[in-house]
Amino acid sequence: MATVKFKYKGEEKEVDISKIKKVWRVGKMISFTYDEGGGKTGRGAVSEKDAPKELLQMLEKQ
């Protein structure tokens, strides 16, 4: 499965596409929420050019 690499609050993070719950576009950025486990929801964003094609496909399906 594909992963998304991004920075959040200065920390490098990587999340599996299957854990992503919601995806939306903000200008040229793709924002998303994902399941961190333990009932927590994380947030992240990547630029449109750095987003994996699976993430862009999720955006188109909504």
Rank of each mutant, 00 (worst) to 15 (best):
V26E: 12
K61V: 10
S18R: 09
G44L: 02
G27C: 15
R43S: 06
L56H: 11
R43N: 15
Y8I: 05
V23F: 07
E60Q: 07
M29L: 07
T41V: 13
M58G: 04
Y34C: 01
Q62E: 10
A45S: 12
Q62T: 08
F32R: 00
K13S: 02
K40P: 11
D16G: 07
G42V: 09
L59M: 14
Y34V: 02
T3A: 05
K9R: 09
Q62W: 03
F32C: 03
E48P: 05
D50L: 14
A2T: 13
D16Y: 13
F6Y: 04
G42P: 07
A45W: 05
K19Q: 13
A2R: 08
I30G: 00
M1V: 08
G38H: 10
M1T: 10
K5G: 01
M1C: 13
D16V: 09
K9D: 07
G10W: 01
A2S: 07
A45V: 07
W24L: 04
K49F: 11
G39D: 15
K53S: 13
K28S: 08
I20V: 05
Y8A: 04
A51E: 02
R25D: 03
G27P: 14
E12H: 07
G39V: 11
G44M: 01
L55C: 02
G44A: 11
E11M: 04
L59P: 02
E54C: 11
M58H: 08
K49Y: 06
G27R: 08
G42H: 11
E60D: 10
M1P: 09
V15M: 02
G38Q: 14
A45I: 11
S47L: 14
V26K: 14
G38T: 11
V46H: 02
D50E: 09
K40G: 15
D35Q: 12
D16S: 09
V4W: 01
E12C: 12
E12Y: 08
D35N: 04
Y8K: 04
S18F: 15
I30C: 05
K53Y: 10
S47T: 07
G27S: 13
M58T: 04
K49E: 13
I30H: 01
Q57V: 06
R43M: 07
K9T: 01
Y8T: 03
G39L: 13
V15I: 11
D50R: 08
K13D: 01
Y8S: 04
Y34H: 09
V4Y: 00
F6L: 02
V15N: 00
K21M: 15
S18Y: 15
M58N: 04
S18N: 11
P52Q: 04
K5W: 02
A2N: 05
S18G: 08
M29S: 07
K9P: 01
V23E: 01
K22E: 14
E12S: 07
A2E: 05
K9W: 05
K7V: 11
A45L: 05
E60V: 13
K28Y: 10
D35A: 09
K22Q: 13
K7Y: 10
Q62L: 11
K13C: 04
L55S: 00
G44I: 03
E11Y: 06
V4I: 10
R43L: 13
G27V: 06
Y34Q: 00
E36T: 08
Y34N: 01
W24D: 04
S31Q: 08
G10E: 04
K49L: 12
K19H: 14
F32S: 00
K7D: 03
K5M: 02
V15T: 07
K61L: 13
R43A: 05
I17E: 02
V46C: 07
E36V: 11
K49I: 15
Q57N: 11
V46Q: 03
Q57W: 15
G27F: 04
V4Q: 00
V4A: 01
K19G: 04
K7I: 07
G39M: 07
I20L: 13
F6I: 03
Q57Y: 14
I20E: 00
G27I: 04
E11F: 05
L56M: 11
F6A: 01
D50G: 08
E36G: 10
S47G: 13
K53T: 13
S31A: 14
Y8R: 03
F6T: 01
E12M: 08
G10R: 01
K9I: 02
E54G: 05
D16R: 12
V26W: 06
K19C: 09
G37S: 10
M58E: 09
K19W: 11
T3S: 05
K61E: 06
I20R: 00
M1W: 15
R43Q: 12
R25I: 08
I17G: 02
T3Y: 04
E54A: 08
K61M: 08
K9L: 13
Y8W: 09
R43K: 12
P52T: 05
R25H: 05
G44R: 00
D35T: 09
K7F: 08
T33C: 15
K9A: 06
E11K: 05
G39K: 05
I17Y: 02
K28D: 04
G38N: 08
G42Y: 13
I20K: 00
I30R: 01
G44N: 02
P52R: 02
K21H: 14
E60I: 12
F32Y: 00
G42W: 12
P52Y: 02
K53A: 10
E60G: 04
V23M: 08
V15R: 01
M29F: 07
L59R: 03
S31E: 12
A51I: 05
I30F: 13
